[in-house]
Design a protein around this nucleic acid. Structure first.
Lengths: 341, 341
DNA sequence: AAGGCTCATGCAACCGGTTGCACAGCCGTG
DNA sequence: CACGGCTGTGCAACCGGTTGCATGAGCCTT
């Protein structure tokens, strides 16, 4: 039972070669280019390899091929319910392409994001940056080096998946208008967030067209607590309805309103975004759908295509996948209260 | 501007060596063992390296040292709100130890879990398996190969972090008893889950002691839909209170109860587990706290220690960190309704 | 029967770091 | 002045795969 020096768990290609009585090259080819070998040899080698429990050393492979078989997905906050479904579907899709997935959580910080990327760059073939907080320049720099797919960030020339909230957002404004609301509040998310910028813009433009006034309250980091704390500003604004950056903020707002005895939707209407928790609240939250899972799958596909196309024809293909949204009306929106004198 | 063949983005150790007029070995040592070199050389090499933008090739390094600087965390379902905080804190802790984190989502399948692990094993130094669905034998086999830390799985001899629900669970039973409930239902989660087994057991034992009857309703995969669909069984049981495997199931149950016009907590009391969404529901859910984030940090620390100790003294140190829980009483628990004849 | 072709396989170099060992230069000591 | 020790650096092998090229066997063709 005495074994080789050390206790390296690794069966190497050399071990397999010896056992199968072929050269190391043949073992390698049995896995990477079986067409080059005789049917019989391939089978024999594979059988022996399986018996010995051979698993190729990824590092060695990466060293000679330059390919790692890894990708990275970077998110600002995995604890934000928007991201888990995205990451999940991404990972499952990557799995079918035999890619392993690094996860980076930047904690909403551009700086940490940059560090993470630098750390991972050395061992991934491509990145999926979800809602990156990074500067455009840095993203472009990275994209010049290796395949990058963005989610919810709109940079021309870089493949991206955009969840276009404008559709659902517009519906929301129109609904509120129809319900008689005249003054809205937008509870804005992180400034670095493309989604926030898009929502902000759509909202102000649509409101202007609909002749509604909209005040913007900065919430900053989109958390439950931040949403709850923003309620005082909401109340001060005199608005009768609010649209929040996302559902997490909405939850906080719901809680804050309840504390103040403001009942939803009788006294106040609220619309969320992303539809991540929407059905789970009470009252059930009216929200703009998002389809994060779809985005994850799309991003993975985009990246896989990019990786595969990296050799054949050097066409960068800056594809842009857009995912449409719509308003899901539930129980937090109702007619505006009679105006108080 | 003509450059080297290909367009390898990589500045290699050779490039730095040439530019600094030293050997490759010296460059290597300037980073890994600066004590061996003269102060001056170290500085010169580092300066040159920085100027060239040298970043060590992780694969090559891994190949010669056998260290990858990567760990993997495997979860059954990242979309389950219990896991994101755990993964998040784990990743942040790993970052400080300069470890990159692979994420694997096994989709609640032991088989997929095994595949993921096999795929990742080749490039990680250690694993954190959160709520693994894998068989004990396979886990032990893996643990024999490399450092493994378990979360919510209790295997003797393997370092693990356990969120001990029994404390909170017992409190829950006692509270319900005090409120006059006599028949309980436990909405059980995945059978492969240690957490479920622990909760199941604690619950039956404590209930027996408290002279309460408890019926078990299998929910299977802990999802909102599954929780909602289990309500018919709950109603059929004739119980006046339920304890659910986790908060997600509880949410579903709340929804299902509402549909049937059963009001909580007047007609029925409900207790969740993990306290992941607890404050966010209406009525706010009474739940057993969990501290997933704490568990994530603890697991990371355990693994880091293990990795560092792997050489010095070969003491396996099968440490077991237990995180206590308690009941957080909110608004879904109240006195049992008058018994109907 | 000889030349040419194809197919299957081996040889050896290479990817980019790390590290044991050798060696050169310098110092201090006896 | 000779010698041992210490310090700083280079040489070259090695980690475990991959791959261009060479080789040899077998078969077909003319």
């Amino acid at each position: 039972m005495a074994s080789r020096a050390g206790r390296a768990p690794g069966v190497t290609i050399g071990d397999v070669a010896a056992a199968a009585q072929v050269s190391r090259a043949t073992v390698s080819r049995a896995f990477t280019r079986p067409q080059l070998l005789s049917q019989e040899t391939v089978e024999r080698v594979r059988t022996v390899a399986a018996r010995l429990g051979y698993v190729g050393n990824q590092a060695a492979r990466a060293l000679s091929t330059g390919r790692f078989g890894n990708i990275a997905v970077v998110v600002p906050d995995i604890a934000n319910p928007f991201f888990p479904p995205l990451v999940r579907s991404l990972q499952l899709a990557a799995e079918t392409a035999d890619l392993a997935v690094f996860l980076g959580d930047s904690d909403e910080s551009a700086e940490r994001e940059a560090k993470l990327i630098a750390r991972l760059a050395a061992q991934v073939e491509g990145f999926v940056l979800a809602s990156p907080r990074l500067s455009e320049a840095l993203i472009r720099e990275l994209a010049a080096t290796r395949p990058v797919v963005l989610v919810n960030r709109d940079l021309d020339g870089i493949p991206r998946v955009l969840i276009d909230s404008s559709g659902g957002m517009t519906e929301a404004v129109l609904l509120l208008k129809k319900l008689g609301h005249q003054r809205l509040v937008y509870l804005a998310g992180p400034r670095d967030s493309w989604s926030d910028q898009q929502r902000r813009e759509t909202l102000t433009q649509t409101s202007a067209k609909a002749r509604l006034t909209v005040e913007i309250v900065e919430v900053g980091r989109p958390t439950y607590a931040a949403g709850r704390d923003s309620v005082s500003a909401v109340v001060r604004s005199g608005a009768t309805a609010a649209i929040a950056f996302d559902d997490v903020v909405s939850q906080g707002v719901l809680a804050g309103l309840e504390v103040r005895g403001i009942s939803v939707p009788t006294d106040f209407s609220l619309v969320g975004c992303d539809d991540t928790l929407a059905a789970l609240t009470t009252p059930a939250l009216t929200s703009v759908s998002a389809g994060a899972a779809t985005a994850g799958t799309a991003a993975a596909k985009l990246l896989v295509n990019l990786l595969e196309a990296t050799e054949p024809h050097t066409e960068p293909s800056a594809e842009c996948v857009t995912i449409a949204t719509h308003l899901v009306t539930r129980a937090t929106t109702a007619a505006a209260p009679k105006s108080t004198p």
